[in-house]
Design a protein around this nucleic acid. Structure first.
Lengths: 142, 142
DNA sequence: TTTGTATATGAAACAATGTTGCAAATGTAA
DNA sequence: TTACATTTGCAACATTGTTTCATATACAAA
């Protein structure tokens, strides 16, 4: 689905900032930070617009925010289960403590948690921290 | 264990800022934000010292940081299993999306996750978001 | 194609949080 | 009491989050 098609589907206006962010997230293998998105968009970038665009896309359920750390925030497209036409972002996120890379582990599903009576669970975020393949290899070389 | 005893145990100097933060976290039922700690410490508070004290206490394993959200960071004392004298902060954190409260759910243990070969897991953070008892009750009243 | 209008943008202005370098202050061991 | 390694607090700055409001724009309807 193209960025234009996505915005049409969600009844959102096709503004340049929205289209640019969606385009960039689509071609990105990994979740991207504001800074990384900024670099790609160059001059056409305005922080306030970025901020509001992110809000809009998140509220619509088009993207999700990954908070890996108190200083590490990334954004990624939601993936859809085409059969159910339903959102499927109940996956685990991986954060490499050495290189700072963040990954959506689409195949690793979040376990259900039970809280004491009286709590209502809406969502569950899981961030697994450790070393990625590349960083383990670099470690061995030393 | 008193703050003084904790710092002695970890071979850290007993400075006023460290003692104040530990004292406050000990009497706090819930994890506290920098802002909340700041209010308690009043004039004797310096942001840079706070920042570095938090680093020191976290590195020592005395406290842990809970990142519930990109704008919600709290700190809490680690709890110890007195029998094993070992750290036990592999618990789930709850974040109320209505009142912003954060809780350590000591009794809800983090499920083990398996990542593809090549990843080395060091730590796993779980934040369950939803409504707390009080906010559910308030919701019903409306 | 033009136009009206609800929506989105971007400037200004500010709050909160994270971070480093460095000189002065201080905790603690001798 | 002293010596010194450690810690503090100031200055200075970077990043991120947020609101208000006038202007610009997307797009539906004429």
């Amino acid at each position: 689905m193209t960025p234009t098609e996505i915005l049409t589907l969600y009844h959102l206006r096709k503004t340049p900032t929205r289209l640019s962010i969606l385009e960039y997230l689509q071609i990105s293998h990994l979740p991207q930070s504001e800074n990384e998105i900024h670099k790609k968009m160059q001059d056409s970038y305005d922080r306030i617009t970025f901020y509001r665009t992110i809000q809009t896309l998140m509220e619509a359920g088009i993207i999700h925010r990954i908070v890996a750390d108190n200083t590490t925030v990334r954004y990624a497209l939601n993936h859809y289960n085409s059969q159910l036409d339903e959102q499927n972002h109940d996956h685990v996120h991986f954060y490499c403590t050495k290189c700072g890379k963040v990954e959506c582990m689409e195949e690793v599903v979040v376990q259900p948690y039970h809280l004491p009576d009286g709590y209502k669970i809406e969502e569950c975020n899981v961030v697994v921290k450790g070393l990625c393949r590349q960083c383990i290899i670099k470690d061995h070389d030393r």
